[in-house]
Design a protein around this nucleic acid. Structure first.
Lengths: 101, 101
DNA sequence: GAGGTTGTTCGACGGTTGTCGAACATGGGT
DNA sequence: ACCCATGTTCGACAACCGTCGAACAACCTC
């Protein structure tokens, strides 16, 4: 299983923004920003397994998260440094926003 | 003609991000960031009048731009200060990104 | 007021996206 | 070996989005 994790610089800005422009995915990003590394199953956001898997794929392919495989589990974490280097301030600005707007 | 220009704080973050997550709209924002105020017709991005009008509406309703009506023309400008106050760093991060990624 | 300019609105269309259940794949435990 | 737990993939479906031409609205100028 080769995970597709592109170089962030090769991802169009619009794709990064689109990946963040979803409520469920933003919840995931918020959780990752606070908690460090999470197993996929830890997330419980009122969506099915399939949907969660889909969202994590979008985040991964947008270069926002990195995934580590360990047994049957997958551990996800934010690519903070890379995001900060290429889009300084973006993540903080998004995270600083009120969760419910 | 009452233009719908919401308070930025009342717009969900996801709506702001979604508004920026489009190539045409990002071109508009880039132009506005450099040029100050533009008449709608000044934009020539290879889309029809109808499409351009649609994109300007999306930006306006996301709280990103403000529109001034003058005769048959409409002048559009960025709401930089408000954006900066609510999402510090976001606009700069997006604008700093390479136009073609 | 007739005509031209500037923009918006109205379907319509095709493509993309979020969602789900079900089926599948993989690895661990007993 | 079997079963269970964890995730992914596969249709399918509805909703949304970007796009266009055509029609409409408002205003300016002659």
């Amino acid at each position: 299983m080769e995970l597709h994790e592109p170089e962030l610089r090769e991802v169009p800005v619009t794709a990064v923004l689109a990946a963040l422009a979803d409520d469920v995915r933003l919840q995931i990003v918020r959780a990752l920003a606070e908690g460090g590394e999470y197993a996929c199953g830890t997330f419980e956001f009122g969506v099915s397994k399939a949907t969660r898997s889909h969202h994590l794929k979008v985040l991964r392919e947008a270069g926002i998260t990195r995934t580590r495989v360990a047994g049957t589990s997958r551990y996800v974490r934010l690519r903070r440094e890379e995001l900060e280097r290429l889009y300084p301030g973006l993540l903080d600005a998004v995270l600083a926003a009120p969760a419910r707007a």
